[in-house]
C-alpha cells in the first residue's frame, strides 16, 4: 500500500470557518442566497427597504438575536441546547436596570450608584454565573441539557419578575451628579453611523469565529460535540469545555440584555421571552447540526440576518404579524430540510 499525502487543497483562508471556495459556498451558502433573495424581493416590494439607514436599523434589531445565536451556536456545536438564554437576557436587563436605579444598603444607610462600566461588568458576570449553573448541572450532574436549561429558564424569568414585582425599570439614563450616565450609549450611539450594537456583534462574531477555527478550544469544542468519548480519550477536557460553552452562552445573553435595555431605555422582566427559539432557528438556518460537531459562525450570522431581515421586511411592506410567524416557521422547516439533505449527501463508505 502506498502512502498518499496530497496537500494541494490547503487554500484555507476563511476567517469564519474551514475553507472558502465557490463550490462549497454554493452548497453550504444557501443561507447567503436566501438573504440575497430576501433583500431583492423586499427592495422590489417597498421603496423604503433598500437604503443604508434601513439596513443599519434592521441590523441593530438583528444584533439582539445575533448575540443569542452566537452563544447558542457554541452550545449546539457541543451537542447541547440552551433554552435559558431568553430568560437570562431578561434577568440581566433587569439587574442592570436595578443597579442603575441605585442599590440601597440599609445597614449603612446609603444608596450606591455604581458607574456604568461596573454595571456592565456585573451583568456580564451574572450571565456567566447563570451559564455556569447550566453547565455544572449538565456536565457533572448529568441532567439532560434540554431539561436543565428549561428549569433555569423558568427560575431566571421568575427571579426577574420578583425583582421588579412585574414592573419595568424606566429610568436608565442615570444622573450626571451621580456619575452614572451613559447607559444609553450602547443602544443609541453610532460610530461612523453604525450602531454600537452592530459593532459589538461584528467584534463578537469575529472573535468567536477566530476562537472556533484557530484556537485549541475551538478544536476541542468541535471534537467533543462530534464524539465526546473519542475526544475524552484523546485528552480533551470534555467537561470543562461543556461548562465553558454554557458560560459563554450566558455572557452572550447578558450582552444582548444590556444592548436591548439600552435600546429600549427600559428594563422589563419579560424582555426576551421566546428569543431562545429565534436563536436556535438562526443557528439551524445557518447549517449547524443539532446533533453537534457541525456548524460555523458565518452560517449562524447569516441565519440571524435571514430571520431579522425577513421579519422587518414583512413589517415594512405591511404584512400582518400572523403571516410573519407563518413565514418564519416555513423558513426554519426549509432550512432543516436542506440540512438533512446536505448531511445525507456526504459520501459514506462501508
Amino acid at each position: 500500500m502506498s502512502a498518499l499525502s496530497s496537500s494541494s487543497k490547503t487554500s484555507r483562508s476563511g476567517l469564519f470557518g474551514e475553507g472558502f471556495d465557490l463550490g462549497r459556498l454554493l452548497l453550504e451558502g444557501r443561507a447567503f442566497f436566501a438573504l440575497i433573495a430576501i433583500i431583492v424581493i423586499f427592495s422590489i416590494l417597498s421603496p423604503f427597504y433598500f437604503s443604508v439607514s434601513n439596513f443599519l436599523t434592521m441590523s441593530s434589531h438583528v444584533a439582539i438575536f445575533g448575540f443569542l445565536a452566537i452563544g447558542m451556536l457554541l452550545v449546539i456545536l457541543n451537542g447541547g441546547i440552551d433554552l435559558s438564554v431568553g430568560s437570562t437576557l431578561g434577568l440581566c436587563g433587569v439587574v442592570a436596570g436595578w443597579l442603575m436605579q441605585g442599590v440601597t444598603i440599609e445597614a449603612a444607610g446609603v444608596i450606591l450608584y455604581p458607574p456604568v462600566w461596573a454595571v456592565v461588568l456585573l451583568t456580564l458576570v451574572l450571565g456567566a454565573i447563570v451559564g455556569a449553573v447550566n453547565g455544572v448541572l449538565i456536565a457533572y450532574f448529568k441532567v439532560p441539557a434540554f431539561v436543565a436549561t428549561l428549569g433555569v429558564m423558568y427560575v431566571a424569568r421568575g427571579v426577574a419578575l420578583l425583582m421588579t414585582n412585574g414592573l419595568t425599570f424606566n429610568n436608565l439614563a442615570g444622573k450626571p451628579e451621580l456619575g452614572n450616565t451613559g447607559f444609553d450609549w450602547l443602544g443609541f450611539n453610532r460610530i461612523a453611523n453604525v450602531p454600537i450594537g452592530v459593532i459589538i456583534l461584528a467584534v463578537l462574531a469575529i472573535s468567536v469565529g477566530l476562537m472556533l477555527s484557530r484556537s485549541s478550544f475551538g478544536r476541542w469544542l468541535y471534537a467533543s460535540g462530534g464524539n465526546a468519548r473519542a475526544a475524552e480519550l484523546s485528552g480533551v477536557p470534555v467537561k470543562r469545555v461543556q461548562i465553558a460553552v454554557y458560560m459563554m452562552s450566558g455572557v452572550c445573553a447578558a450582552i444582548a440584555g444590556l444592548v436591548l435595555s439600552s435600546q429600549l431605555t427600559s428594563a422589563g422582566p419579560t424582555a426576551g421571552t421566546t428569543y431562545e427559539l429565534t436563536a436556535i432557528a438562526a443557528v439551524v438556518i445557518g447549517g449547524a447540526a443539532l446533533t453537534g460537531g457541525r456548524g460555523t459562525i458565518r452560517g449562524t450570522m447569516l441565519g440571524a440576518f435571514v430571520i431579522g431581515f425577513l421579519s422587518d421586511g414583512l413589517v415594512i411592506i405591511g404584512v400582518s404579524a400572523y403571516w410573519q410567524t407563518v413565514f418564519t416557521g416555513a423558513v426554519i422547516v426549509l432550512a432543516v430540510l436542506l440540512n438533512s439533505i446536505q448531511y445525507k449527501a456526504k459520501p459514506k463508505k462501508s
Binding site: T10, R12, L210, R214, S215, S216, R219, W220, Y222, A223, G225, G226, N227, R229, A230, A231, L233, S234, G235, V236, A289, G292, G293, R294
Partner: peptide, 30 residues
C-alpha cells in the same frame, strides 16, 4: 465509538490528541 470524531476530517482526527503541540500562544498554527 471511542476512536474517531466522524464530523471531523482525517487531518483533524490525526491532530486531535496533539493540539498543544501546534498551538502558538492562543492560536493554532496551520
Amino acid at each position: 465509538r471511542d476512536g474517531l470524531v466522524q464530523t471531523m476530517s482525517v487531518g483533524q482526527n490525526l491532530s486531535l490528541a496533539s493540539i498543544r503541540k501546534f498551538t502558538r500562544g492562543i492560536f493554532t498554527s496551520r
